[in-house]
């Protein structure tokens, strides 16, 4: 089972992303859970959201405290929120930032896999908005494998309709452009 914790700010779409990812993983034959950090959320305030993906039925319903992967949707949270808390030492940290993985590794002193991509830059170019939640699904899928990028198409089409393709393009670019430091 892979457990992912997403860090974002209210309104950046972390919850939408975990939902789209879980729906897509389930459609692809996997078992998955997608859930927000429960409770009130405010636009702009730090939020977390969670994904579990497995090949067999998932029974655990408690929170995720030792994730395999942490995805940071908004790099301004680094230093503000302890994003690597509980992240397994051999886990994977994915950050939406123009910085290199080496820089992030130095900043956070995290020795596991570090991967970076300028998701916001890609989202701006591909969709004209600085909202990188769907873009970063591409980055995540590159790092964790588990399913093809194409598996996202159904859920993205359903959610975004006529702007779905732009989301898929941005996702694909993040998938291709992410830099991974093992």
């Amino acid at each position: 089972m892979i457990e992912v914790r997403w860090h974002g700010r209210g309104g950046q779409g972390a919850v939408t992303s975990v939902e789209l990812l879980a729906v897509s993983a389930i459609a692809a034959g996997k078992y998955a859970q997608g859930f927000p950090s429960f409770g009130p959320e405010r636009r702009g305030a730090p939020v977390a959201a969670f994904t579990r993906i497995d090949d067999k039925k998932i029974n655990v319903r408690s929170g995720i405290y030792e994730p395999d992967v942490v995805l940071v949707l908004d790099s301004s949270l680094i230093g503000l929120v302890p994003v690597t808390d509980g992240l397994k030492p051999d886990g994977k940290l994915i950050v939406n930032t123009p910085k290199t993985p080496e820089e992030i590794r130095r900043e956070l002193n995290f020795q596991g896999t570090v991967a970076t991509v300028d998701g916001t830059g890609i989202a701006r170019k591909e969709m004209g908005v600085p909202i990188a939640n769907t873009t970063m699904i591409g980055a995540l899928l590159k790092v964790i494998g588990v399913m093809e990028l194409d598996a996202m198409k159904g859920a993205i089409d359903h959610r975004f309709g006529r702007i779905a393709q732009k989301n898929l393009n941005a996702m694909k670019r993040a998938y291709d452009e992410i830099k991974i430091l093992n």
Partner: peptide, 10 residues
């Protein structure tokens, strides 16, 4: 509430 209502699952 939340534990189930807000969970996306199969």
């Amino acid at each position: 509430g939340f534990q189930l209502t807000h969970m996306v699952e199969p």
